[in-house]
Nucleic acid binder design. Structure first.
Lengths: 216, 216
DNA sequence: ACCTGAACACCGTTCAAGT
DNA sequence: ACCTGAACACCGTTCAAGT
């Protein structure tokens, strides 16, 4: 009787169990570790067995995205609709920080489940309660999601766009003498050591202030 | 004398030529088509020859990201700094629409070249000319990039987060009766047929208005 | 200096075969 | 109904060998 690496799982290999194991695997060992073969062995099963419960790798990724969106907090509704918007936007970033290796999937794949649509419903509702007409509410929703997701992705990547010039100074490969980029040079300290929470809040509040301005 | 598929390239296989061919390949056939083997055959060369000019696949992706960022328009500086900010932000989205299959790389990988840092320098400068103090200028820069990149990624993916509920009605798999999601249901038409240009402009102007409000 | 074939250790997925 | 081994058509990268 062979015993697999992880002391042989007992569970009867259900779809949700597969998804949970997959997300835990990505969280623990990175996105590259998520292969059908590796996930199978994690479950004490051959890779091909997974196809009895999930159509293929793409559906697996869809499921992971859904599982993460469903984690966005939608508890008691705040009294102020602005606070509901803040909570939704912060919730996206919170999911990203909880699952940095898997977060790239969020927003790139369609949502099918009720749990994943609840946060969307809450956000759209809050924007309407704020007084935004339908067109603006949808635009604002897209703007907030775009901002939160874009910020989170950059944060996960380490804000790589900006940290380079001072570091990559190995003989200034191209023509990277800093005097050519006075603003980057003068802002080097802010660019190098970002206050991530403050930066996120800044953009979120700017967006909200822009929405308020439109209302009155 | 064997002749390769693409009538045998004559060029002596330089790094920039490799990058140009790679970007064209991704634009034409999608991100999955970019393999070392495929790129080699595109250049009339064995895959291993590429390693003489590029360290590996990761450096290839770095190069593609840089090439795209360098495409952001930085022509004559607009008189109003706000217009420079608009041009930078629109420029990010323009690159995304020009290279939808490759755009995911932008912002996730460090920049080394002068050409790629020019747009960054221009954007930071414009924000400072607007009157933002250093901390806010960097925060605003990050906010604008996050928004533009997040929006462009969602747009490329087809705004998949929202288009589902009406479509996926196959017997309401989970518990997807629309009455559970009144806001999504009532906004269905706006969610289904997005005016992408208007949506992008809406978020950008909201951010700018928020920055203006902060200035007093 | 640059190019290459063979090889290594992997992939996702199909399929016929098992229970 | 669920699981599996073998097989197919791929990957990125190393390395010794060629010119």
């Amino acid at each position: 009787v062979p015993v697999s690496a992880q002391t042989r799982q007992r569970s009867p290999l259900t779809r949700t169990h597969i998804l949970e194991t997959a997300l835990a695997l990505v969280d623990r060992e990175g996105a590259d570790a998520l292969t059908m073969r590796r996930l199978g062995s994690e479950l004490g099963v051959a890779a091909m067995s997974l196809y009895n419960h999930i159509a293929g790798r793409d559906e697996l990724l869809d499921g992971l995205a859904e599982a993460m969106v469903a984690q966005i907090d939608t508890g008691v509704v705040p009294r102020q609709p602005e606070d509901a918007v803040r909570r939704f936007t912060n919730g996206i970033r919170a999911v990203a920080l909880a699952h940095p290796e898997a977060f790239e999937l969020v927003g790139m794949r369609p949502l099918h489940t009720r749990a994943a649509l609840l946060p969307v419903e809450a956000a759209l509702g809050a924007l309407r309660v704020m007084g935004l007409p339908d067109d603006d509410a949808v635009h604002a929703y897209r703007g907030l999601v775009s901002y939160a997701r874009g910020f989170a992705l950059a944060e996960i990547a380490g804000f790589t766009l900006e940290e380079r010039p001072e570091t990559a100074g190995t003989a200034a490969p191209d023509d990277l003498r800093l005097e050519t980029f006075p603003h980057i040079a003068e802002l080097a300290s802010q660019l190098a050591r970002p206050d991530r929470d403050a930066a996120f809040a800044f953009g979120l509040e700017a967006l909200l202030a822009g929405l308020q301005a439109r209302l009155g």
